[in-house]
Amino acid sequence: MSGRKETVLDLAKFVDKGVQVKLTGGRLVTGTLKGYDQLLNLVLDEAVEFLRDPEDPLKTTDQTRRLGLIVCRGTAVMLVSPTDGTDEISNPFVQPDGA
């Protein structure tokens, strides 16, 4: 059984690197990963939260607020990705532009 291999992603390679974390409820936080455990609780240093659109709390804006050193609770973590190489791009699913 693969039951005891806790994570499919080895977070060790992200330690001391920038990561972007999405949390349930819509918060988006970036910071330097300082530590983690098997429950996906994360320690982020110099964390920055992207503030959200007051009308649509699921949409993040470019406004930020500094949070400093934080612990993200694992159960609230939806998504983890490295900030390195993460960029906003134009629509990559190009429609057939014959028309």
Binding site: T7, S81, P92
Partner: peptide, 24 residues
């Protein structure tokens, strides 16, 4: 090699990799 699309389908991000929690 992920492309993330916002809920409305109007913004796009590319990221080299990502980890998604199953219950979401």
């Amino acid at each position: 090699e992920v492309i993330c699309t916002s809920k409305d389908g109007d913004r796009f991000w590319r990221m080299p990799e990502c980890y998604v929690r199953g219950n979401t």
